[in-house]
């Protein structure tokens, strides 16, 4: 008798719902939401406590919020993506789910969607609090805040894709978490700075493209500029570059990272064996 299985879409929905349910049971989602509340609270409270001047321009006010968005994206990607795949192998939970009649692609997609939703809950809450604060303190809103949110969402997706790729490759959850965090917090920013110092635009670095999240809040949108500074006595000069990715460039690079990483991660996950 032939078994009738749910469709791939139905299974994907079940996997995603199950993963989201797991997040609510674990400490990570509450922890990320706690971080969101803490950071937004600090951003709102510190200028009031220290008697700093609060900008009148909504874009300028919100830029402080947007400055933390990329870090929040990194925290979310690490919490919800960096060990999503590797933990099934290391914690041996894969021995239960992998022999079930569900495609690895479906499992991957369900996990990814759940992680992305969890990340978006945190990012959405953060932008919502920031928008309400902006409206409260400046009396105005700005469409640029929504644009910044969309760019932050794209950055989050690209970062999550890379986190899933690393998770598909690594053998241990700790190493995977550390690698994702260090890569985006240190390695990419350091590479970005080194290239900028050398006068090379760091176009291929995703954190550089992530600068569009805050750049979109500048009026006008910043463009790449250079400054020649004299150093020493013999008319020696140094050129200091201030690179800014264009919107199209930033979006293009983040899309490329997201698509490539996801495709590679799915391929590796599909081929990876539950041995050892």
């Amino acid at each position: 008798m032939e078994k009738i299985l749910p469709s791939d879409i139905k299974q994907l929905t079940l996997v995603a719902r199950h993963e989201l349910f797991r997040f609510t049971r674990g400490w990570r989602l509450p922890a990320v939401l706690g971080i969101v509340l803490l950071i937004s609270g600090l951003i709102i409270a510190i200028p009031q406590i220290m008697n700093y001047r609060v900008p009148d321009d909504p874009k300028e006010y919100f830029r402080t919020f947007a400055g933390f968005a990329s870090i929040l994206a990194l925290i979310c990607a690490t919490f919800f993506g960096a060990d999503a795949i590797v933990s099934e192998y290391q914690n041996r939970t894969g021995y239960v789910i992998f022999p079930a009649p569900v495609r690895r692609e479906t499992l991957f997609s369900g996990k990814f969607i759940a992680s992305f939703i969890a990340c978006m809950i945190a990012l959405g809450l953060y932008y919502l609090i920031g928008s309400i604060a902006t409206l409260y303190f400046t009396g105005k809103g700005s469409i640029s805040i929504l644009q910044s949110f969309l760019l932050a969402s794209l950055y989050m997706w690209a970062l999550l894709s890379v986190a899933f790729l690393i998770s598909s490759l690594m053998k241990g959850t700790t190493a995977s978490n550390v690698l994702v965090f260090v890569l985006f917090l240190m390695i990419f920013p350091i590479a970005e700075s080194m290239l900028s110092l050398a006068g090379v635009e760091p176009s291929a670095i995703p954190t550089y493209s992530g600068n569009t999240i805050t750049d979109i809040l500048s009026d006008p949108y910043p463009v790449t500029s250079k400054q020649v500074i004299p150093i020493g006595r013999n008319n020696t000069t140094m050129t200091v570059w201030d690179f800014h990715p264009t919107l199209a460039q930033g979006i293009g690079v983040l899309l490329a990272y997201g698509i490539t990483s996801t495709a590679l991660a799915v391929y590796i996950f599909k081929k990876r064996e539950m041995s050892g």
């Binding site: 078994k3 299985l5 914690n91 041996r92 939970t93 021995y95 239960v96 022999p99 079930a100 009649p101 569900v102 495609r103």
Partner: peptide, 17 residues
Amino acid sequence: PRKALSYVGAVVETPEF
């Protein structure tokens, strides 16, 4: 594998939940 495993119940090694 999806179709083949629909007929199977399996316990492999000592699984974790």
